[in-house]
Design a binder for these strands. Sequence first.
DNA 1: CATTCGTGGCG
DNA 2: TCGCCAAGAAT
Length: 295
Amino acid sequence: MAESNPLREPLLDWYGTHARDLPWRRADATPWGVLVSEIMLQQTPVARVLPVWAQWLARWPAPRDLAAEPPGEAVRAWGRLGYPRRALNLHACARAITADHGGEVPADHDTLRALPGIGEYTAAAVASFAFGGRHAVLDTNVRRVLARAVRGEEYPPKATTAAERALATRLLPTVDASTWGVAVMELGALVCTARAPRCADCPIAALCRWRLAGRPPHDGPARKGQAYAGTDRQCRGRLLAVLRGSHDPVPKAALDAVWSDPVQRERALDGLVHDGLAEALTDGTYRLPLAVVSE
DNA sequence: CATTCGTGGCG
DNA sequence: TCGCCAAGAAT
């Protein structure tokens, strides 16, 4: 049976001429470089990842290089990328890869999926982009493109559905599936964006059900915006920034100074320690972790 | 399935 | 200005 995916050719043609030159996509990028990029790109824009990725790969060119460091160094080098537990996940990945996989990033999807911080998307992305595996790569970009082009709706469902997975799998080419995946992602990132889609520049506009229907707006309830100011997350961010800025243990007073509410501050600090992002020393000072927290 | 988890830029 | 959103995962 011949493949029935009319989106494929125009999309691949477009990708061939419009793809960004990102370092983790180049021919000399290693699987480790791809893995690091995918973790960093979780909920974080490309522009902010670029400089940190370059620093990480220069300092830790292979998993065993990072594995040799204490986890706190990964947290420090993470800088202000956000969601710093991803730095711990990457460090834990490096140690697991070194200890259990001979220092080489595994190519198998399920093996990748079992590593810390690697969920369905990231496992598929690394298996596909680093090793050329045939996997449906369902990120927020792909979900939005398929929702519009195929389902005719402005936005995909809040949580990924079985129908979305089935659709993405059905569209997957038998040959060079990884290029198809990255091309759909790129279209979602550059043209079929969440807020102001540039349909005039879209290579599949003529086939897009949403555009053909007159771009009907999303009808359901609005998305639940994420508050930040005054939250525990902001408090944790402030506290961790203090720890990142010092190579020596910092006195408790230095942490108290960055958040006024003592109840919330203690809760946030305990949370950081519990998550393995900070260590409390016996003299009452705190620092980035030298050891991995046990459960 | 709903929450939690950072940060910053842009429309 | 400020709400929305950015290559998600874990619980």
